[in-house]
């Protein structure tokens, strides 16, 4: 299976490691971490649908952020984490 990266094109799945869910919740902001949110961040699962996730690309040692359907495994987007986060900070969505 090939993963479609926006910058380096299609790469084999074996080059990637899953790095957890991308949390849009307060859990990723340190001062707002309270126990239930922190627990959800650490252990929470998702029932399905399109999820934001971290992916580590071994050959380039780069983190990516992908939005992927948990049933079909198709990516909606898969782009370098820096770019994705910068856009989110500017107030844009995915």
């Amino acid at each position: 299976m090939l993963f479609p990266c926006t910058d380096i094109g299609e790469r084999p799945k074996s080059e990637f490691r899953w790095g957890g869910y991308l949390d849009d919740s307060a859990a990723s902001q340190e001062d707002a971490v309270c126990a239930p949110e922190w627990r959800r961040h650490l252990w929470g699962g998702k029932p399905g649908g399109v999820q934001g996730e971290w992916w580590f690309h071994h050959p380039s040692e780069q983190w990516y952020i992908g939005f992927r359907d948990a049933a079909s495994e198709r990516f909606v987007t898969l782009e370098p984490a820096q770019a994705c986060l910068a856009r989110q900070r500017e107030g844009g969505t995915r």
Partner: peptide, 12 residues
């Protein structure tokens, strides 16, 4: 190595 809600199998 990663979550998925499909009962597929894979070559890798």
């Amino acid at each position: 190595a990663y979550p998925c809600v499909s009962s597929r199998s894979s070559h890798d």
